[in-house]
Simulated scan of single mutants.
Amino acid sequence: MSALTVREEGAESDWTRPGVFRVADGVFRIPLPLPNDGLRAVNVYAIVDDGGLTMIDSGWALAESQELLGRAIAALDCGFPDIRRFLVTHVHRDHYTQAIAIRQTYGNQVALSIDERTSIDNANDRQGFRRHLNQLVRCDAGPVLEMFRKMDRPPPEPNLWEYPDEWIDGRTDIKLAERALVAIPTPGHTRGHLIFRDDSNVLTFTGDHVLPHITPSIGFEAAPSDMPLADYLDSLKLVREMPDTAMLPAHGPAAASVHARVDELLDHHDRRLGLSFEAIKSGATTAYQAAGILKWTRRERSLVDMDPFNQMLAVLETAAHLDVLVAQRRLTSVDTDGVRHYQMA
């Protein structure tokens, strides 16, 4: 494979195309591939710091991804031993597992929010995905469950759900050799999601919390909080109250303003709350029934037209919206035989 060269951000119209893109002084965006995923790529960011690297996120532990990351940091005159620390925004596979795989060979340091510990524990007892399916039971999503039961089980993977070297507990100052970051909890996408602000350089590494083209899934984890959407909306408002910066997201190109996208996301969820309310008003009584009434993605797709995994995400997100409506006393809910039913307040 040919060597990679450093280019300025904006040099490519396709943000997923492999490369090394300078987004700010000493900061480089590196898109890495994802397997069978509509997102196609995840951005990791390399911060060049006194001859070494600090990485924001790491990518999915795939041979192709690790090879591409190695070529990318070589364009910065570095190798894997020069990565001093991975600062991971959250514990999803496309952000965390490659850090662990590289650490197993090179001994790099990995940092993660302490609020992700439950997810790692669930992954290690191999019950995590089963708990996702149990959440579908509460949503009355029998057809989605049946599709998963008919699917072939994937072969076992190497265990990459090891603990990090450092648990980040709450808002934390992170000192690098030549700059300072602040880790800020932004729960919602996961319980332990973090963003990393570089106020001196007017940058925010937003992970999956604020994405330029899509809305992140809400509470997709084995043990979500009681109100993941309420957590997410509160986290968006928290970011909106901070000074605006450039946005360096995990999926999509860099953008000039975090605030502009936060405003769009808040408007989006306000609309989805209204549509979810109308779905119950029209006669739906469960999250699965409401999800079947709603349209999904920018293409306005029906629930049944999506693959099983995205149907699961859609149903769980609908449940999150309906639970917020209950908290707002616009709806009421009652659990009967393990299924949550909603009605007008």
Rank of each mutant, 00 (worst) to 15 (best):
I83T: 04
G107E: 13
I120R: 03
S113Q: 15
F86N: 05
R138P: 02
Q104H: 06
Q98A: 10
Q104E: 14
R117L: 10
L87R: 00
R84P: 00
N108R: 08
A74M: 14
Q98T: 05
R130S: 10
S113G: 14
V88E: 02
I102K: 04
D125H: 05
V137T: 07
T105R: 10
I120E: 04
R117P: 01
R103E: 09
H132E: 15
A75F: 02
L87T: 02
A111F: 04
G128P: 02
D115I: 02
R117T: 07
L76H: 05
P81V: 14
D82L: 12
R103N: 07
D115A: 11
C78T: 07
A101K: 01
A72W: 01
R131H: 10
L76E: 10
Q127M: 14
N124G: 04
I120Y: 02
Q135P: 02
H92E: 08
D115Q: 09
H132M: 15
A72C: 08
R93D: 04
R93A: 07
D115M: 09
V137M: 08
D94N: 11
R126V: 09
I73S: 03
S119F: 00
L136A: 02
L136R: 01
A72V: 06
R126Y: 10
F129D: 05
Q127H: 13
T97Y: 03
R117M: 12
R84G: 07
Q104K: 06
G79N: 10
A99D: 08
A111K: 07
V137R: 08
R126G: 09
I73R: 01
F80I: 11
H95M: 15
I102R: 04
I102C: 07
H90L: 05
R103L: 06
Q104D: 13
V110S: 01
R117W: 03
Q109Y: 13
R126Q: 15
A101L: 07
N108V: 07
V91H: 02
H90R: 03
I102F: 03
S113W: 08
R85E: 15
E116T: 00
A72G: 05
R93K: 09
V137A: 12
V91Q: 04
G79C: 10
A74T: 13
V110Q: 03
L76M: 12
T89N: 10
R130M: 11
F80C: 13
A123K: 00
R93F: 03
R84C: 11
R138D: 11
P81D: 15
N134G: 13
Q127W: 09
T105L: 10
Q109N: 14
T97L: 08
F86E: 06
R85Y: 05
P81I: 15
E116P: 02
T118Q: 12
A99V: 06
Y106F: 13
Q127V: 11
Y96T: 14
D125F: 03
V110D: 03
F86P: 00
H132Q: 12
Q109D: 15
D125G: 02
L133N: 03
N134L: 14
L136W: 03
G107K: 14
R126E: 12
H132K: 10
L133W: 02
D94I: 03
G107S: 13
L87V: 01
I100A: 09
Q109P: 01
Q98G: 04
L76P: 01
Q109V: 12
A75K: 05
Q104A: 14
